[in-house]
């Protein structure tokens, strides 16, 4: 199929970007969206033009590295699907496709479609871990009983791949869905309970410092999340945060 592409080109964080038009021919309906981008870049390189920079890694929907705001939606039109798992058969011959980077103050553009999601790493560093004893007498994880329902909930939260589509979709550019998934996966388990209060306070504090917007429960994040992380996690984080702020002794 033949397509018209409108792609955001931006030299670096401080320069002004703009949409540029590209025409691409003979795209296989069986190729993935990123393979279509590869095809375009090969043509650009052949012509001596600057290829379009975009993020990707595993290309099997598990690493969270790919992004792209495609035709007005993060990860494109298909639900519960990362851009690398999106196929060109979802588009029609002759379609015009808008391709933009995630847009948020907290995610500055590095170049073209690639944004710096380091804010997420700093939120994890602020408390998204457990301090386990690894000095030779480590406890077997299975020795601690966990109710099946809790284990399932924690696992669902842990499937978040940290892609940032939630921020990209949110009209407020809020990171609540990501942060609440990372708070929940630990808060639900006995191993995470010990540091639970500090964790939620520190992670939320870091989230605000990074310049994300505030959650007003719009729900666009959960609709666009490729891993279908649910709003229940945000409610859980609100509970944890309220409880921790009222009872924390620090």
């Amino acid at each position: 199929m033949d397509l018209k592409l409108k792609i955001w080109r931006q030299a670096n964080q401080n320069s002004k970007g703009e949409l540029k038009d590209y025409a691409i021919k003979n795209v296989s309906a069986d190729s993935s969206f990123l393979e279509m981008m590869d095809q375009l870049n090969e043509e650009l390189i052949d012509k001596g033009d600057d290829p379009v920079v975009f993020d990707h890694d595993c290309r099997e929907g598990i690493c969270g590295m790919c992004s792209l705001h495609i035709n007005g939606e993060p990860h494109g039109p298909e639900n519960a699907t990362t851009t690398c798992q999106l196929h060109m058969r979802k588009f029609k011959d002759g379609d015009t496709i808008f391709i933009e980077p995630w847009r948020a103050r907290a995610f500055p553009v590095i170049k073209d479609l690639s944004v710096d999601r380091g804010a997420f790493d700093r939120i994890i560093e602020a408390g998204g871990y457990v301090n386990v004893n690894t000095s030779g007498n480590t406890l077997d994880a299975n020795a601690i009983p966990v109710p099946k329902a809790d284990a399932d909930e924690a696992f669902n939260a842990a499937t978040c791949i940290g892609c940032g589509a939630c921020v990209a979709a949110c009209p407020n550019a809020s990171a609540m869905l990501f942060v609440s998934a990372k708070v929940s996966q630990l808060a639900l388990l006995p191993q995470g309970k010990v540091e639970a209060k500090d964790r939620v306070l520190h992670m939320v504090n870091q989230m605000d410092l990074e310049g994300f917007g505030n959650c007003s429960n719009v729900g666009a994040c959960a609709e666009e999340c490729p891993k279908e992380i649910s709003l229940e996690n945000i409610a859980r984080m609100n509970r944890e945060y309220l409880g921790a702020s009222l009872t924390s002794t620090k």
């Binding site: 039109p77 847009r103 009209p171 550019a173």
Partner: peptide, 30 residues
């Protein structure tokens, strides 16, 4: 105040933006 802060959190607008596919109008216009 919150609504203004939220606008600032996305300084560069999307050129193509289809919010009706993921949320209702009222929720975005409180």
């Amino acid at each position: 105040y919150l609504a203004m802060q939220n606008r600032k959190a996305r300084p560069e607008r999307y050129r193509s933006w289809k919010p009706n596919r993921n949320s209702i109008w009222a929720s975005r216009n409180m």
